[in-house]
Nucleic acid binder design. Structure first.
Lengths: 151, 151
DNA sequence: CAGCAAAAGATACTTGGTCTCATTAAGAGG
DNA sequence: CCTCTTAATGAGACCAAGTATCTTTTGCTG
């Protein structure tokens, strides 16, 4: 497990190096921490885990990682913007409002549907932003369980 | 046209009054300005048009209007949050990246599709946020026209 | 038209992020 | 391995959007 995580951090750094960015020690630290994150996080979360890094460095790294596609931004229900690892290109998130976990939404025909619908409004679609909120399997079954036991 | 706009402002105020909020002169001013807006705007835009109102008052009014469902927040492609009139309940926006206009997306089966897709991920859907970006009919035909004439 | 609560205004503060600029450190070339 | 160049960092000022606090004003009800 630990090995895998480090492998992920390595991978993030490689992505940066491929694009001509240096592998500096702050960046290694950021990559390590991000690779360990299991849910979406804010710049502040990162800062808490990397108190020795300058504020600007954290923000610069985040920006870079978003630009290179390593991270993506997720919009919370209240409008807060968080970050999380983006394993693939364009995708959407199923965000659990209870535990804060998120899964990627795959194999969904939404792009197709959006194209059709916007075309019918005379609209030439170029992009979209979609976030989906609800309860993950674990949280919703935990709910049902507690209903049964408290009843 | 002018008459309609004032009627709209009236209507916004009535919505507030129905919920027990007073009709004060700052609120009347805000309602008037919002009713005249033809695209999404920021608090700063409003402030520019209402220089005599306190900053906090503008923000308080916006918040109130969002809570009462008169306004909705729209997410721009770059992550900026703007406001705009919300004529109906839940809906989505087709935002023109060229002229900044927006249309509401109606008669779309997205909710249904989302429900199915998230259920297949074991996810109990409770809400979502969708914004669609592209070119409106006017802008995309203007583009085509200029291509023709410059060719 | 008096009095009270709601709202407004001024302004300090907070959060998330960018800019500037002097200093440090990758890493390429000798 | 050393040197040099340039990218990157850190510190801290700055900014934008929004909230909190506190005093004054204003709608409204009786």
């Amino acid at each position: 497990m630990r090995k895998r995580v480090n492998a992920l951090a390595e991978q993030l750094l490689e992505t940066l190096e491929e694009r001509g960015y240096r592998s500096t020690s702050p960046r290694r630290a950021v990559a390590q921490v991000i690779a360990n994150q299991d849910k979406h996080f804010t710049a502040e979360d990162l800062r808490g885990q990397l108190p020795l890094l300058g504020r600007a460095t954290i923000f610069r790294s985040l920006k870079l990682l978003v630009e290179t596609g390593v991270l993506c931004r997720v919009l919370l229900e209240d409008g807060d913007l968080h970050y999380q690892l983006s394993h693939r290109g364009h995708h959407h998130h199923l965000l659990c409002v209870e535990c804060g976990s998120s899964q990627d939404l795959l194999g969904c025909d939404i792009e197709e549907l959006l194209h059709q619908t916007s075309a019918s409004h005379g609209f030439e679609l170029s992009g979209h932003w979609l976030e989906v909120y609800g309860r993950c399997r674990a949280c919703s079954s935990a709910d049902k369980l507690s209903e049964l036991t408290t009843a």
